[in-house]
């Protein structure tokens, strides 16, 4: 139940920040009675209320011993690592271009997931990057990110 207390605190923070940013919405003469801030304010208040209820409930109920564990989950640092690889793709695509960024992405993820570097894995990454490039750039005619580094 500690998770619930923690999450209720996060929700309260979200509600607070959301409300605070909503004060920045300009008021306009084109507005209706509800106005652009109407719904955001209601949402912020409701979320705060729900958060408080979740939190107090968590305090009051005794911790349930050994809730049925869900599926096997990765420890959080490992999950964040996966996320960071995804995030690194954005600057990579911007600077190195689509094909190279994909090549890196596929190799790094495969390695991160436990595949040892080998000729085979290098070939898979090469083939994968080329396949996606053909699919998106050539077949679908998408203007994929171009390398700023070489441009």
């Amino acid at each position: 139940m500690r998770k619930d207390i923690f999450s209720s605190a996060i929700l309260l923070a979200i509600a607070g920040v959301y409300y605070w940013v909503s004060t920045d919405i300009p008021t306009s003469t084109l507005e209706d009675e509800v106005g652009p801030r109407g719904l955001p304010v209601v949402l912020a208040i409701l979320l705060a209320m729900v958060a408080v209820v979740i939190g107090t409930r968590a305090f009051m109920t005794a911790p349930v011993a050994g809730g049925a564990p869900e599926d096997v989950e990765a420890p959080w640092p490992r999950a964040m690592g996966m996320w960071l690889i995804g995030a690194a793709y954005i600057p990579a695509a911007d600077f190195l271009g689509y094909w190279i960024a994909l090549l890196l992405l596929i190799s790094v993820v495969a390695f991160y997931e436990g595949m040892k570097f080998s000729w085979r894995s290098a070939l898979v990454a090469l083939g994968g990057a080329t396949f996606f490039w053909l699919l998106f750039s050539v077949l679908l005619g998408v203007r994929v990110p171009e390398a700023r580094l070489f441009g």
Binding site: M82, I85, G86, Y89, A93, Y98, L102, L105, I106, S107, V109, A110, F111, Y112, E113, G114, M115, V124, A125, G128, A129, F132, F136, L140, V142, V144, P145
Partner: peptide, 20 residues
């Protein structure tokens, strides 16, 4: 396919698709 490859290709696919 083996999971490492599958994860890599799924990530590559969604990031490319969303860009489009």
């Amino acid at each position: 396919r083996p999971k490492p490859y599958r994860s890599a290709f799924i990530l590559a696919l969604i990031l490319s698709g969303v860009y489009t």
